[in-house]
Write a protein that binds this DNA or RNA. Sequence first.
DNA 1: CTGAAAGCGCTTACAG
DNA 2: CTGAAAGCGCTTACAG
Lengths: 354, 354
Amino acid sequence: MTENNDTELVGVKEIARRANVSIATVDRVLHNRTGVSLKTKDKINAIIAELDYRPNIMARRLASKKVLRIAVLIPSVSSETDYWDAPLTGVSQAEAEIKAYGITVEKFLFDQNDKASFHAQARNVLKDYYDGVLLAPMFVEESKEFVEACQKRDIPYIFINSDVPGTNCLSYIGPDLYRSGYLGAHLANYLINNEDKILIVNISQEMDNHHHLLRKEEGFRAYFSENGKSMSIAKADIRRTDYPSVKKELTLALQAKDVRLIFVTNSRVSVVSRFLEESGIRDIVLIGYDFIKENIDYLKRQKIDFLICQKPQEQGYRGIMFLYNHLVHSASIDRTYYMPIDIITCENYQFYRN
Amino acid sequence: MTENNDTELVGVKEIARRANVSIATVDRVLHNRTGVSLKTKDKINAIIAELDYRPNIMARRLASKKVLRIAVLIPSVSSETDYWDAPLTGVSQAEAEIKAYGITVEKFLFDQNDKASFHAQARNVLKDYYDGVLLAPMFVEESKEFVEACQKRDIPYIFINSDVPGTNCLSYIGPDLYRSGYLGAHLANYLINNEDKILIVNISQEMDNHHHLLRKEEGFRAYFSENGKSMSIAKADIRRTDYPSVKKELTLALQAKDVRLIFVTNSRVSVVSRFLEESGIRDIVLIGYDFIKENIDYLKRQKIDFLICQKPQEQGYRGIMFLYNHLVHSASIDRTYYMPIDIITCENYQFYRN
DNA sequence: CTGAAAGCGCTTACAG
DNA sequence: CTGAAAGCGCTTACAG
């Protein structure tokens, strides 16, 4: 047995005694600092390995008065949607849990319809020194630029909500978008017949080729083609998010068609529901995204049939905790951490935790 | 402003200085120990309140070499079902996260088909001293007796999986059983027509009047009556859990009836699915409980249509973390913490986290 | 009822 | 390249 069971008894003191050095030298090796002869270093490392030494985190953080600072770069809650309230809540929750351990979390919120505000806040993060960053890379190019700067400074960063492939992030925490669209189709399939018509609705101001809504749409369509169902699927891309615009576009899209089901690829589903209600249309099944106040109102009254949710609060919470575990406990972190794909109905919504 | 922003600078030393006493006396007041004159105590408490003093948890746990011990009293994994593997995993996960802070978790597993084993393990817990207990009160009377003993010793305890009303537990963490049955009915309602027949199946060895499966059945029935649907609902209580017995009973229950949907009130749904498959019955919709290996196999192949899950792993995780937060951070704990009611299908099961 | 001192297991200057 | 000493903010005997 090389294993040591009296873990509690092994500390820097014991290592120093065995290596015939002072604890300061042990500390230097432990933190990979310079100023230790290779010979001493090797000897100490051997002892550390042999004893399977685990540093006492509490003593470490107590002695080193250093406070670890985490920066959070996510969209602010807007009048349009309070979706980002959930991740923020999760962040704050994690913050409360770990602040006793000397961790500080600072929030930099930007306007998700305004690239410049993202850029400005990213610059603010870089102006100061942070030990880790959690961000929602809403703007792909700008985000890439930002994380490259982080990389240069050796600042670890984690993405939530959507991923940016090709970066060196510590982790991506969020949905598997394709799969969630696929599931949406599967649910749809329960509620309609083969000959029914489907309308996919994308409502978003910003919409480039990498947009994550398109991944959901892909998944949605894939379900039907993979299962040999040749449903008739129409599509409406709506770029203006105000109600009159949406109304106009929807009216157009539904004209002369016999749509039985609408799949809205994001949280704007409540606007669609409002339109259907005001138009007195009652026989269209509605599936959309996200557990937000506006949507729940319609879900309750069964105007929306299903909401697909991806635990935005937990994304924020996990993001901070991953960073904390990485920085404090040197824990290894999953490169991608997919959120569960939750289905919310009027029956279970009261038990849902975002 | 009575608030103090330099929280970091306020410690026992500062309090002692202001009160003109030694830090030992401050410590006595902080921990409500005897041996301090009322006058001194009041003075110190006033200062503590005024400064909004928050003890440094790391220093506290480091100085007090005392290790906090938590006992976990839950069923063991049996050959019949590995359901309890999930809570155990959650417990271990929490344990790993907090062991650096001087918390120890000891597991006492019992056989859920054997009251005597519960009794024996409960006695083992009481023999030693623990600072907190997490238990699944599978046997109501025995559990009541046990927690009364805890109460007498001032040991806080938390229930998971099912509640025991009338006790003084710190918290109940688990499903709202009635609601989950209600949801089961709601899902059922999507998949069948008004004239279709339903069969409720309870499979359990132990089954008294307080049994939690009955709460699910109640909820299930309530949905239909509350929504004015007069479905024909039959019921099969199966007390022997081996396959031949279940097969016999199911054959009987399905005889001469035109059952379109079966609702199994617990994780034994896989046995029912096996029966249906072996009997070549393909047109019966099947809804049941729990994300366990046996069930997932059938779910994947769409032999089971829906599984309702209640995050057993998180129940174990939360249970330990609640106790930890209570013991270490003196955090206030929710008296009941209902788990979300998750719906699992063949599409989203791979993203489900138990 | 109260206080001075040692110590928890580390890190941080500082001195050599 | 290395070590002795002070200190992080508490708790724990021990002495009075």
